[in-house]
Design a protein around this nucleic acid. Structure first.
Lengths: 173, 173
DNA sequence: GAAGATTGATCCTTCAATCTTT
DNA sequence: AAAGATTGAAGGATCAATCTTC
């Protein structure tokens, strides 16, 4: 992370061990490069960002292909603000519509349109192939299991409040 | 990723297995939330982004605290363009200087200034504590080792050309 | 002409402020 | 007043084009 060059502070700090340092450098690389690779591939071949794909995908799996904005934000691991901006763009392209929930008008439902579903269907095969190529072809089954546990452990840290795994991902139409 | 909702395309595609799907959803969460958490923490407490921290840190560990822009890009897992923009900002703040290599004036050397080093030293303890809290306190030693292997495997996929681990990270002053 | 690096335009994200409904 | 969501401004990333040196 910073190397022993930067030691000597008033705050006592436990620096990373050599093996932790190596793990951290490698993880940092993944955090920077994997999203970039997914974005580049999706933009080139499908004209959408990875985050837009996530939003379309989350909506597509909800009952009625409809989801309140807040749930959509939780499912796409993002802030309400970010989702609001992105859905506005997707709505402008005719891929999602928004309308207030009849019973409780504070809630806004995002609904995937047939056109939006088509975009997702067109993008999915290549995207899944890319994910397989970049991730699951690279690791063993045991590593996949380990990765799942590790990622869940990190997510619990990042979001101690949240139920895990999130309730909505377990629901299906 | 997309769910069986989106099956039926002309291209034959091998969809993710249930365990791969779970791993991918969890990894996606980490890819979206961990960088956001690191950025938020660094910005609040040190006034820099995580990527700026990486650039300062990489420079600090080079001989003479100096690195050609290209090597700096490789070490920080980013494009030359991105590094160029960021170093321009850091230079404007007086934390890095740039000057052409005497022998080969195509090469531009980025050098950490004493002020830049101070910023890094001030930021490091809290940042390392955050990384420890968010990552290494959450996983076992075995998981740390597994994470290292997995991350290296992914990086090899992302960058089949590159030597791994990168030569420069092994060099020390 | 290729390597190394930078630039400017465009798009996206973030943050704080705001709006509406409950 | 709190919950749910949106907005606009400001800052950062990306892409293609460009510049300089070899």
């Amino acid at each position: 992370v910073a190397g022993k060059e930067v030691v000597d502070s008033a705050v006592p700090v436990r620096w990373l061990e050599a093996d932790e340092e190596r793990a951290w450098i490698a993880l940092t690389g993944v955090l920077l490069r994997l999203p970039a690779a997914l974005d580049a591939d999706l933009r080139e071949h499908s004209g959408i960002t990875h985050f837009e794909y996530l939003v379309l995908s989350a909506t597509s799996e909800a009952p009625g292909r409809t989801l309140p904005m807040g749930e959509l934000a939780a499912l796409s691991y993002a802030s309400p603000s970010r989702v609001s901006h992105v859905v506005a763009r997707l709505e402008a392209r005719g891929w999602i519509t928004r309308s207030p929930e009849p019973g409780n008008r504070r809630i806004v439902n995002a609904r995937l349109t047939p056109q939006g579903f088509e975009v997702l269907r067109a993008a999915a095969p290549r995207h899944v192939a890319t994910v397989r190529h970049l991730v699951f072809d690279a690791v063993s089954g045991e590593q996949t299991a380990a990765l799942t546990d590790i990622a869940h452990a990190l997510l619990r840290r990042l979001d101690p409040e949240a139920e895990w795994p999130p309730r909505s991902t377990r629901v299906r139409p």
